[in-house]
Amino acid sequence: MKPLKAFTIPFVGLKVGEHHFEYDIKQSFFEHFEYEEFNNSNLKVDLILNKKSTLLELNFKTSGTVNVNCDLTNEPYDQEIENNFDLVVKFGEEYNDENIDILIIPHGEYEINIQQYIYELIVLAVPNKLIHPGVEDGTLDSEILNKLEELSPKTAEYKENQEEIDPRWNTLKKLLTDK
């Protein structure tokens, strides 16, 4: 996958100290990764890069909304997400990203690409189960919800059916409880 230039930070020319970067993440960013779970996205990523003499500290914070489909009704809605992530970049003999929050890059490197970290930060912030807020508070009117309600067993009808059971079974049930 070709790295996006907007997410490449040339840190070699930066002074020691904190540097702020802001990124607006739209749907085209996820299309680059061929990720099709979002209908649309409107996210903001704030990055604070703290350059020190021997390492870099990166603090990612993301917030915004992604438009996704509800798992129950398949109705699209905007899911709010918020997440943060800290990454330490050290210099070593060879590239090593085996540790989650430590990245080791070769001594001669002069820039770092952060697109993969932003992508993972956003995708992992989305809840596993996506439920439309209208389903939870009962305000969503959907054909699928109406059909589910129609096909679900009614508690009053269920109790009436229980009362219509042959009385001989009730006496057998007493045998179980009369011990």
Rank of each mutant, 00 (worst) to 15 (best):
K2Q: 07
P3K: 05
K5N: 06
A6N: 14
A6M: 09
F7V: 09
F7S: 05
T8N: 11
I9D: 04
I9N: 10
G13S: 10
G13P: 00
L14S: 02
L14W: 08
L14K: 04
L14N: 10
K15T: 07
K15H: 07
K15E: 13
E18G: 05
E18K: 12
H19F: 03
H19Q: 08
H20T: 15
H20V: 15
H20I: 15
D24S: 15
I25P: 08
K26Y: 11
K26D: 14
K26I: 12
Q27G: 03
S28W: 02
E31C: 08
H32I: 06
F33C: 00
E36D: 08
E37M: 06
F38N: 01
F38S: 02
D46M: 08
D46T: 09
D46G: 07
L49N: 10
L49V: 05
N50W: 05
K51Y: 09
K51A: 06
K52N: 11
S53F: 10
S53D: 12
T54E: 15
L55Y: 14
L58T: 02
N59V: 05
K61T: 05
S63M: 14
V66T: 11
V68F: 03
L72A: 09
T73C: 04
T73L: 07
N74H: 08
N74C: 07
Y77K: 12
Q79D: 03
E80L: 08
I81V: 10
E82N: 15
N83G: 04
F85S: 01
L87G: 00
L87Q: 05
V89H: 01
K90V: 02
K90H: 08
G92D: 05
E94S: 14
Y95S: 06
Y95L: 15
Y95A: 10
E98Y: 12
N99V: 11
N99K: 15
I100D: 11
I100C: 02
D101Y: 04
D101S: 02
I102E: 04
I102S: 05
I102M: 02
I104H: 03
I104Q: 04
H107K: 11
G108V: 09
Y110A: 14
Y110F: 07
I112A: 01
N113F: 00
Q115A: 05
Q115E: 14
Q116R: 06
Y117H: 09
Y117K: 08
Y117C: 00
I118W: 01
Y119V: 03
L121D: 00
L121F: 00
V123N: 01
V123C: 04
V126H: 01
V126N: 00
P127T: 03
N128K: 09
N128I: 14
K129P: 06
K129A: 13
K129I: 12
V135A: 01
G138H: 04
G138F: 09
G138P: 08
T139G: 13
L140E: 03
S142D: 06
S142Q: 02
E143D: 10
L145E: 01
N146D: 12
N146S: 08
L148C: 05
L148T: 09
S152Y: 09
P153E: 10
T155K: 14
A156T: 15
E157A: 11
Y158H: 14
K159N: 10
E160Q: 11
N161L: 13
Q162S: 13
Q162Y: 13
E163T: 12
E163N: 15
I165K: 10
P167A: 02
W169M: 03
K173A: 13
K173V: 13
K174L: 07
L175D: 03
L175I: 09
L176P: 00
L176Q: 11
L176N: 06
K179T: 06
K179G: 01
